[in-house]
Each structure stands twice: as C-alpha cells, then as structure tokens.
Design a protein around this nucleic acid. Sequence first.
DNA 1: CACCTAATAT
DNA 2: TATATTAGGT
Length: 301
Amino acid sequence: MREDDSNWFSKWEEELPPPEELMPLSQTLITPDLALAFDIRTPPPHNLPSTTSPQCHPPTTPPNPSSHLAPPGSATKPCSAEFADSSELGPGSGGDEPARTLKRPRLVWTPQLHKRFVDAVAHLGIKNAVPKTIMQLMSVDGLTRENVASHLQKYRLYLKRMQGLSVGGGGGGGGGLSASSDPATDHLFASSPVPPHFLHQVRPSSDHFLPFVPVAALQHHQMAAAAGHPQLQPQYHRQVGHFGAPQNGQFEHPFLSRQPPPIHRMGAPMHNPVQPYVEDLESDNANGGRKVLTLFPTGDD
DNA sequence: CACCTAATAT
DNA sequence: TATATTAGGT
C-alpha cells in the first residue's frame, strides 16, 4: 500500500487572496446589457440531485457569498456590477436589447480550469460526476452546464482511450503506448493529473481484485449555515476583466476575485478548501478576432 | 428534465 | 483546432 500514490489531490489551491487583492474590476469593455446577459445561469439553490442514493449529503454548494473572508469594513469591493458606460454595443442593435439571445464567447479551458474540473469530478466520484453537479462544485463563475457537459464528453473519451492501452492484461504485453494520441485532446488533458479511480476498468470475469476505494465514499454531512442572510441569494454577477496583451513577460492576473465561500465536505480528513475561480474575459485574442472567455484561477499550481 | 453519445457546426 | 450545438435515445 502506498499512501503516496493517492495524493493526487495533494493540495488544492490554497491561496486565499486577501480582500485587498481583489481588484476593482472594470468591465469597461463589457456593456451592461452584455454583463447582465452573461449572468443567466441557474443559481444553485443549494439542492443536490441525490438521485435515489441516500448517500448522505451530496456536495451541497451553499451559495454563501457573505463569506467571513470579506470583512464589512474593508475596502474590498466585491465586484459590484457597476457600469461605466456602454461604448460598445451588441450586434446591431439597438442598444438595450434583452440580452437573451446573446451568445457568450467560447470558453477556453486552461490547464488550471481543467484541473479544477478534474478535481471536482474526482471528488464527486464517477457516479455523481454529472455536468450539473460538476458545475456547481467547481464554483466557477460563468461556467455553464453545457460548458461542462461538452468538456466532460471529451474528457470521458480521453479516459476511455487511456484505459484502452493501459490495461493490458496480463502478461506481457506491452507495447505500444503511443498509439492513441490525439494531439488535440491530449495536450489539455495531460496537463492535469488524472485520479487513479478514473482509470479503473471493471472486470466482470475473473479477477476479483478489489481496486482502491475512492476517498469520496466517506462523507459526513456538514451543513453550513443555511439560515444566514436571506437577502443574499444567488451570485448574480460575473466578474469580467480584460487585460491587454500578456506580453512575453508573465501572466499577471489583472483581476482576481472570488465568489462563493469554499465548500468543505470532502470525505478525506484533510481539508480541501475548494477555491472558486474567477473568470476573465479576453478580447481580441490571437485568433482571427474570436472572442473567447477565459477563466482564470486564483492561483497557480 | 437531466444525461449520454455521436455527429455536426462554427 | 477547440468548443458549441444539435439530434436521438435512455
């Protein structure tokens, strides 16, 4: 038994940027309607689809924006939706159009963002790792269920592929381990450590070799303050920022902010402070003028 | 309705 | 290319 191999979650991003770090975001590039339009996502009313399994309490994500991390008298300005002026406006139109049918920019899955994704899936377990739950656990502002679903689909294919050539069977084998390379997917997915349980394959026939038990199996309910501040409901705001050109120097997070408080409730005795990520909007990418949405993590790993 | 897989569109 | 979107089934 090696206790060293299961430290894939050695430590989550644990860098609580002090309130001072929160920069006054300025969505000067984002029009008010646009910003509001982006917020259309299902507010997690702290309810989890526990299907029919009484498995304690699933990862409830108590939308508790009023984190104690934000002292009231602090100069911290929680990304308030402040609109400067709408210099830019939507497609053709006329100004304040119900941003209902507006399309969001493509989401860019950065390694960090993907890591969060993997961590969420790992901690949820394969069973509960469904788009909605993953999305809620990730607590990434701006992430939609479809974003996760789409990515999850690819990720599953990637896992399947890995198992395909990893599980050799016995004896001998060996051989080719550079066959399935989809440079496209590999590059991203390989950047993140894949939890061991993901690469397990069920062997109905012989082989009663019990794999490792996922740590996510143990869960004890730890309800956070449910009756906190009723006034604070969902997290209806997206922090968007725009940074010009990340020259060849280094990436400096122009805007860092966090939203929901960390949700602890993992099976492991260790604390896994889930850190919410922030998103960043990048315009004018090196693409043909494509606008993409980039989610920035609150730390580096 | 949410999910999954495959195929397709951008 | 990497995501988004759609279709069709569970």
